[in-house]
Amino acid sequence: MNGFWRDSGVALAALVLLLGAPLAFSSPAFEDFIIRLSALALFATSLNLLVGGSGMISFGHGLFYGFGAYAFALLMQRTTLSLASAVLLTLFLAALVALLVGAVCIRLKTIYFAFVTLAIQMLFYSVIISWVSLTGGDQGLQGGIPRRVIAGIDINQQGHLYQFCAVLLVAGLFAMRHITASPFGMTLRMIRDNEARAAFLGIPLWRPKLAIFVLAGVFAALGGILASLFVSGAYPEFADWPFSGQAIFAVMLGGIDSFLGPLAGSAILLALNDIFTRLTEYHGLVQGVVILLFALGLRRGVLDFLRVLPGRGEVASR
């Protein structure tokens, strides 16, 4: 229970800091950065619920990110639902899809689980491309997300969108943190580390696995919603293979064994991307070299690396 209150404190402090920042200094670029970070960090952290927390390596997590973006943008464009109802309905639909996909996939082990999630994502992507009348095909959903002011929140105003994203980021991370720290999260880690033992202890393996798969899908969809708000539309790239790769990279970069690893990884990834893109058209080259240095040098995420620095003893325990 101690951990819960401490986490709450951290979350609250982060929220105050984020909401207060624009009062101290006004920078639209900073706000843009946080909005994009909130989308990617939710996506990456949700992926880490599977990868780090449960040992389920998914190559196709982008499916839910893309689904969230499209479902939300379509609901806003084609119905008169309010912002909040559209968000909730999108998350509910994402849970259903994740339940369906999860039910099919989770019985597969290790690399085959990765492949089948990837295959399902590719199928989803090609459906987005083909179903032009609904999705706009390769050109994406155009025409913007309609301006609807609800309870004083006008998401088309940069400042309001920033606050909206900041709140959802902190709330989403807090919820996921709560999940990993709960007995349920511990069960998952036990399954991750030793499936046979967990089975021996009488833990039905598929139920917690499916549950975490659905939860991860829901949080990824939340990230997708924020992304679609930022670009005021939805694009097939969201559901494409390289985008799942981005999240994997963020997770690896930040550290799979630290809860905030994916958040840190997302921030570093976005910052590197922004800086290199500005400096050179050969940003791929520079980014590739940095990834190599990191992968061969640290061999683990930045936060994981910090936690096991020699001489720091059992830093990880608490």
Binding site: T110, F249, A295
Partner: peptide, 22 residues
């Protein structure tokens, strides 16, 4: 990175793709 996380291998491949495309 033998024996390491599968994702680490994936990352190295990704980096090589980026580098050589450029």
């Amino acid at each position: 990175v033998y024996g390491g996380n599968v994702l680490m291998q994936l990352l190295i491949c990704y980096a090589v793709v980026l580098i050589f495309d450029d």
